[in-house]
Amino acid sequence: MTQSVQAEERRLDGARCEELLAGIGLGDPGDFETFYQATNRAIYAYALSLTRSHYDAQDLMMETYLKIRSAAHLYRPQGKPMAWVFTITRNLARDQQRRSDREALMGDCPPGTLALAAEAPGEDALVLRQAIQVLGAEERQIILLHAVSGLKHREIAQILERPLSTVLSKYRRGLAKLRTALRAGEEG
């Protein structure tokens, strides 16, 4: 990958993402690469919050980008390109769940099935592992989207189709739960 692409702004600028989607719709590989660089962390984080498994999240991420490439021309600019992208990810996660007929996605996966790439010891990896283990499905999605994609609570509320007050309270409750779990882990 080129330096210029690596240096490209990684935060999700709505207007820029829309331009890139338009370029992807016309089959421009450069626009796809730039879009990938700007969104891969956020899409992975959301996929991880849905699947709770690094490997399922990786598959989901790949399917999401394939779908973006084949459907970008159908995107109609409304100022919310990432809401469109996350809807694709969520729908694909549902398909994946139906296909595999597992209960692992979108909710109550037994902690034993958890598989993360961040197996290396380290405080950050521990926080992520705890977040995936102790948070409820929506708390996980809200906290990871907020932390990684830089989306505001109001934007997350729209993506998840939940009221802002619910998103805020789940965010708060999730952070408190995570903090308690980390403290218990240190003391235990």
């Binding site: 891969n40 690094h54 990786q58 991420m61 961040a118 990896a125 932390a147 990684v148």
Partner: peptide, 18 residues
Amino acid sequence: ELEQALRRAVNRSVPDVY
């Protein structure tokens, strides 16, 4: 601090599917 830890952990484990 929690958000930054999550961000760093995700950044380290994000797979390259490009």
